[in-house]
Structures are given as structure tokens and as C-alpha cells.
Design a protein around this nucleic acid. Structure first.
Lengths: 328, 328
DNA sequence: CTATTATATGTAACCGGTTACATAACCTTT
DNA sequence: AAAGGTTATGTAACCGGTTACATATAATAG
């Protein structure tokens, strides 16, 4: 690989001048510039980003932490982040944390050693403490770690209230909730939203809430049990779409007709909800927008670290499909 | 951030000695070692990987190119690659190429400037030529670029033959094929496999083959047309699961009963096939294994660049589910 | 008892860029 | 004509590690 010194020698200038041509920042005579560019062309020279990083102290890389890219919610998020960061000539690093605090901390340290310029984090376990020694900006998604960390969130509680109220509005009498894992950041908010609506009902009992793990397989089993134990349930608000699909399949296996006997509503608005039979009613998050806003804000923070904390909250939307039935 | 010089000063040794302690490679007196470690601890010192990279000429990073992470086939692949690379203390970079040659080349160059140590590439458009100036090892998935590039593939043609023959074996008389986009690497092989079985049938006509784009939405439209134009079709081999799901939905909308009137088989074996109603019969690829083998081989090539090309072919498996019906 | 080898550590060059500082020629301005 | 500004370029320090080479002592071999 040709270095800047090779170029300098060939063009008969100093490395400083080559650097100036490359970065197009200081005075360079246009004739000299041509000579340098020719040399660059001839040698097929490409500057070494590592050397540049070392001097500059940055790397033009940003990282995204997600629990697990196999949950279809996250690829879309990742895509948004990648698209925005690419537009700004940043390289994108994806990290699956499996919701493990240890993995998160390991990644945080390893990437800091690589001078990564910023972090976008979907996590439930990271605390302000963990970020204390991290000098590059951090933005959290789905949850606010602290008032000092910027974030992009949706109003999970409001969405959950809307979902539950919708089930009531179409005539459901006994509405159950399958929640996310305790470890997940938004589980609590969605549960609260559900309880806001249902808590004061005479029939309500904590048996109507069961804890899932945001995955399909587990939800299938849980829902089967739930529906077997309580055959009066006629509506379920499920904390995410993936689990809601599990519920659809569970009902199918128990010969419970959806939406005639049971209405199901999910949360997220991922594509899979369109592919099931019946298709899935859900609370849709603006996933791509969440990711791209987060990336934009992060890049802003990288350029202006002095800037104050930005916390944005985006809106969710109810999407009616075939897994819920409106009362005539 | 503390540097190696700060540590050296505090421990009263030279930076060379600190470096030796860090890398645990040359002779260091155990007492000195303790002193250095104490200094490291006290200063919360973390070596700067960028500086190390610059000297060593490597970065401990590997990149994976996929067409689009939103296709659920790729998250699992990505996961496998990340898991393996993490075990070996490499950082994982994910790149969505959108099957665009320009994006691929841009990524290839940008990452080479960052001294990325190796590439795992799922691509149809990259040629030996494009890789000519790339000095770090490359491994291709799903397709062999050339006999000089290592690869991990499955036997697409054999799998497609199996799928088509299976439809015949359960009694389908008129079997159509929805292929992938011309731009995709495996489209051709899967089409060939289909033709191997069907080509000599008296009824066969090129109308029975239509081209999709590996995505759900488009396939839904295509399938509706296909099924409307040819109401004699009783079996479809679809080139991937995502499109096969589109076919299921299209049939549903046309009131065609699956599997009674129409049998559908996909290719890939992604989870979504379990969530549809009916669940999807498919040719399953060992996705995680493909990814982890590719990563392992790549790491091997990084450590031993002199090693000869490795080309592995893995097996696919027919998974019978509810979208195909065995004749009584 | 000398020669050789293993252990231990420091000095300084090196990786490949960037930029502060120095220098010089030329152009304006008063 | 002197002073100040603009344009143009080079020298060398710097970013923070690694390691070849030099040096010195202790241990072992012949």
C-alpha cells in the first residue's frame, strides 16, 4: 500500500502539502494540487484511516447495541441507523447484547478502546454509572437511563392504554396481558398502561397477567396455558408482535377462533403481523424514524458535545387488522 | 485517558516494559509486573487499539456484507458471524449492500482504509476484479466468485430439485416456480433445479415461471396474477420463504385452500414459516452453521493467509409442514 | 573459570497520517 | 517605501502504541 510519503516523493512536495490536498483545507497552489492528484492516481493511494484516527482521536464509527437482531423489530432499526450514519461517512457497528449486562459492558469498553465516536443503545440494564467513564456521546432508545442521557422513545404506556381500551371498545369483557420479560426496558410501561385501563374492573385478578420473554416460542406455550386455565378470556393485549403471533398459533391449536372468540392485539408494528392468518392488529411504532432520529441526534452530539441533552418522544399508532373484531 | 507513558512513569519503568506486561510476551520480572499492573489499575488504563492497529497493520475487525438485514434470513447469519468473531476478540461490522455494486465497492474501500482484517460477503455482483486490490482475506457465501476465493455454500440446485420432486411425489400435476431476482446469486441455481425436474413434462411452459424479488409484498401481487391466469396450478415451488408467505396470503385472498387445492413449498427455513397459517413446508438451510463456518474459515485465513482456498458445501433439508398435502 | 544462554529492562525508531510553527514570495494599503 | 495581509510550502513534533537492538546481570554448561 502506498503511503502519503510515497505520494509526496512522487509529486516532489512534502507530506504536509499532500495532506492539505487530501483535506482540501489550507492554501495549495492549483498546479501543485494537480501534481499531487496525479501522483495519488498513479499510486492508487488511499489514506490510512487508522493513522488519521490516531491523531484525531476519533474513528468515524458509531455502534448500535440491540438485545438480539433476530427479533425483527431490530433489523429495521439497524437499517435506519446504518442509512443515516453512512450518509455522514460513518461506519456502523452492530452489537447483540442478549440483554446481558456483562456483554454490554464488554462491548462498551472494547469499542471505547477503538475510539468509537458514539453509541446508540437499546438496553434495560445499563446505568449512568456504567457510562461514567465513557467519553463519547450516548443516546438511548426505548428508555431513559437518566436525565443526563439523550434519548428517543415512544410513549409505551399511552400505547398500551390505547390497545387495552380498544379491546374494551370492541366489546371484550375479560382482557388478559402477556407482558415482556422483567429485564426489558419497556415491559413495565406497557404493563402499567394495561393496568391503567383494567385495574378497577371487578373481574380483574393478577392471574390475567403473565410474563413472556418477547419471543415467539415461549409465548405459544404461555398462551396455551393461559387460555386453557381461563376460558373466559376474550381479549389479549400482548406486549409485542412476536409474542402476539405466538398467541395466534396457540389459539389455533386450541381451536379457538380469532377474532370471533378471541381478539388479539400486539405492539410494534413489524411486518410479520401482515403475514399471519388472521393478520395482526397492533400498536405501531415508527421504527425507522426512531432509528434515524437517534442517529441524527447522536451525530449532532458528536459534532457539538457541549450541546444539552435531547429527549424526544414519538407517537404510536393503532393499526386495525383481522385479529380483533369490532362489535356490530 | 491515561496513556502507556503515564503508566510507565508511575511504575517507574519504560513504556517497553509496560507493553511487555500488557502483551505478556517477553521476559518481565514478576515484581515489576506487579508494579505495572498496580499502576494500570490505579490509572484505569486501557490501551488505545487505534495506536496498536496502526503499528500492527490490522484492526481486529471483520465485516459482513448482506443485501438487506430486513430479510429474516440474514439476522441469523449475522448472529452466527458475530458470535464466532466475538469469541476471537474481533469486532463485527455489518453492511447492507441492497445488492448494489456501487455500495459494495464503496464499503470495500472504506473498510480497507480502516484496516479491516477480513470480509464475509453475500453478493451477486462482486467479481474477482473488484477484490483484486483487497489484501485482506474474503470469503463468499451462497456463491462462488471464483476458484481463488473461499466460500461456504449450500447445494441450491439439489435443494430445488428436491422441493420440486417432493411436490410431484405428493401428487401435484402443474407445478409453478416463483424465482428470485436476476440479480441474486442463487436464483439461477434454484431455477435450474426446478427445471431439472419439470422441464420435460408435456404441460410445461415458461409461463409457469415468474420472477420475484425475494420480498413478501411483491410476491403477494405476483402470485395473485399467476394463480388467476393459471387456475390449473396445484403446486408452487417458491425460491425463498418470504415470497412463499406472500403466496400463502395471495391464495387466501383468492379463496384458494392450502394445502387442499394448492401446495406451496419455500426455501430457507426461516422462523416465519412456523408462524403462518398454514405453516410452511420448506427446504431448510443450516443458516447459523453457514455463518459460523464462514467466520471460522475467515479467521483461519486471517491467521494463515498462505493457506489454500477452502470451499465448503453444506446440506439442505426438506421440512414438511402444513402448506403441502401428501396424497392419500 | 570462562563461554554461553536465559532473564530483565531501556532507548529509540517506527506505523502513517495531521498540523503548529517557520519561512518566503507576492500583493495591497497608506 | 515600509507595514501588513495573503498565498504557498516545508520541517518536525505529535497521536499511543510495538519492537528491534543494545546492554547488563544471573544462571548454566563445558
Amino acid at each position: 500500500m502506498a503511503t502519503i510519503r510515497d505520494v509526496a516523493k512522487l509529486a516532489n512536495v512534502s507530506t504536509a502539502t499532500v495532506s492539505r490536498v487530501l483535506n482540501n483545507n489550507r492554501y495549495v497552489n492549483s498546479e501543485t494540487k494537480n501534481r499531487v492528484n496525479e501522483a495519488i492516481e498513479k499510486l492508487q493511494y488511499r489514506p490510512n484511516d487508522v493513522a488519521r484516527s490516531l491523531f484525531k482521536g476519533n474513528s468515524k464509527m458509531i455502534a448500535l447495541f440491540v438485545p438480539d437482531i433476530k427479533n425483527p423489530f431490530f433489523p429495521e432499526l439497524a437499517r435506519a441507523v446504518e442509512d443515516v450514519t453512512n450518509q455522514h461517512n460513518y461506519t456502523f457497528i452492530l452489537c447483540n447484547t442478549d440483554d446481558s449486562h456483562e456483554k454490554e459492558v464488554t462491548y462498551l469498553n472494547a469499542l471505547t478502546q477503538k475510539s468509537v465516536d458514539g453509541f446508540i443503545i437499546v438496553s434495560s440494564t445499563i446505568t449512568e454509572e456504567d457510562l461514567h467513564h465513557i467519553t463519547s456521546p450516548v443516546i438511548s432508545l426505548d428508555r431513559k437511563f437518566s436525565s443526563k442521557i439523550s434519548s428517543v422513545t415512544v410513549n409505551n404506556r399511552k400505547g398500551a392504554r390505547e390497545a387495552t381500551a380498544y379491546l374494551q371498545s370492541i366489546g371484550c369483557k375479560k382482557i388478559a396481558h402477556i407482558s415482556g420479560p422483567q429485564t426489558a426496558s419497556n415491559t413495565e410501561e406497557r404493563l402499567k398502561g394495561y393496568l391503567d385501563v383494567i385495574e378497577h374492573e371487578a373481574w380483574f385478578h393478577s392471574n390475567y397477567v403473565v410474563t413472556g420473554d418477547y419471543r415467539f416460542e415461549n409465548s405459544y406455550e404461555i398462551a396455551k396455558q393461559l387460555l386453557t386455565n381461563h376460558n373466559d378470556i376474550d381479549g389479549i393485549f400482548v406486549a409485542n408482535d412476536l409474542m402476539a403471533v405466538g398467541v395466534l398459533k396457540a389459539a389455533e391449536s386450541l381451536n379457538i377462533k380469532i377474532p370471533e372468540q378471541l381478539s388479539v392485539i400486539g405492539f410494534d408494528g413489524i411486518t410479520i403481523g401482515l403475514t399471519t392468518t388472521p393478520s395482526l392488529t397492533t400498536i405501531q411504532q415508527p421504527i425507522y424514524e426512531i432509528g434515524s432520529r437517534a442517529a441524527q441526534i447522536l451525530l449532532q452530539l458528536i459534532d457539538h458535545p457541549e450541546q444539552k441533552v435531547i429527549q424526544e418522544e414519538l407517537e404510536v399508532t393503532l393499526i386495525e387488522r383481522d385479529s380483533t373484531k369490532r362489535k356490530e
